[in-house]
Design a protein around this nucleic acid. Structure first.
Lengths: 207, 207
DNA sequence: CGGCGAGGGTGACATGTGTCATGGGCCGCC
DNA sequence: GGCGGCCCATGACACATGTCACCCTCGCCG
């Protein structure tokens, strides 16, 4: 019997997903969490408990959650010998890369067929890996972020419509420097302006 | 027995939701659809069929779907005597207003408890209505969009980072006019710049 | 040591944007 | 018929942004 933790901040979805998985004969949902923090707490308790109900095999984590997000949770869980599967609505190449770097064993968009999730859980529980083929292709095609860390910082701060002054203040930089970084990011991404650049970077999962 | 149609373009979520609802004794999921168009097709077939399996009582629709979206589908279904419930990840006041105007009978975010969905379905099947209280309060507090139709158009075109020239070309307007509309929208929304204005308008569900 | 590259900065210049005043045309309503 | 609101446009001005050239300071490495 494979013991599963399901984490998603959308109660409706989490409950439905848990229900779906519990219906499989060889799967059992032993914990649910509505936030990354709750997921970690639950996992720690389960792993500490060596009794009949203790232990945890696989975590199914939504990527978009209040801090910490699914990838951060997966990185922590890797230390507890729990294999993680990330499920997400938005398939960004960058997210996939970060997830794999964090030791995630499975990554699939919410558009995948329901039956596949169970298959992937079984495979991951047995030590396998699974990445949605389409996403994998995108990630390979997209390549790595061409942005330097500072450029990415500035772009991230610019993403919510802040003005140069705001960004400079929040990044502890001179306004001119911010403009240079932004300009460089814009040309690197082939964008028309900073907001276009933000859109591209977000789509790629680079910020 | 209440007959239900579930529509959501995320296969995983739709299957899980259908499973969850089917587990209730008095509910049965008679159709699933991965797009608005498919939902309408299914509903028409079911309503035309007056046999033992025919008929449809309630549609549970995701708001975000490839055209037509949940609200548009609900408006069509109202003509078939099918009551609709909208489920959404993002609770925007404007969406709620549009939904109610389209004759939707239930509106709830995906963060609601799983048990509540079944309750709402029963209530709606019996002719009742249900709107998430928090969303309702927001919608009342937010009021109507202060934007004129053209202002909203320009703002919508500006949302993806287009430059004034682009917007003017796409809207068949003079660049100066676009700037006036944008400026007016910015002041009306109390925003710092056009992108801030876009963010506000999107958050309110006005574009 | 000299050279190099990345981080951080300045100043100048051309464009793009936000704001304002102003005007005309077209409704709908008192 | 006048008034007011929306639509469309123009021109002018201030400020924000994007681009470029150039500078300084560290480390690092040959």
């Amino acid at each position: 019997m494979i013991r599963i933790l399901v984490a998603d901040d959308e109660n409706l979805i989490r409950a439905a997903l848990a229900q779906l998985l519990d219906l499989e004969d060889d799967l059992t949902v032993v914990a649910q969490a509505a936030s990354g923090r709750a997921a970690l707490d639950q996992a720690r308790v389960l792993c500490a408990d060596r009794g009949p109900d203790g232990g945890l095999d696989v975590a199914v984590l939504d990527l978009q959650m209040p801090e910490p997000d699914g990838i951060a949770v997966a990185a922590e869980l890797a230390g507890l010998d729990v294999h993680s599967i990330i499920v997400t609505s938005h398939g960004r190449p960058g997210h996939l890369k970060r997830a794999l770097a964090a030791g995630v064993r499975g990554f699939l968009p919410k558009t995948t067929e329901a039956a596949r999730l169970a298959e992937v859980i079984r495979s991951v529980a047995g030590g396998g890996r699974y990445v949605d083929p389409e996403l994998a292709a995108e990630a390979i095609g997209a390549g790595d972020s061409p942005l330097t860390p500072r450029e990415a910082d500035c772009l991230e701060l610019a993403a919510d419509g802040a003005t140069i002054e705001d960004i400079a203040a929040r990044a502890h930089l001179s306004p001119g420097t911010v403009r240079n970084y932004l300009s460089s990011a814009i040309t690197k991404l082939g964008a028309a302006n900073r907001h276009d650049a933000c859109a591209i970077a977000v789509r790629m999962g680079w910020i």
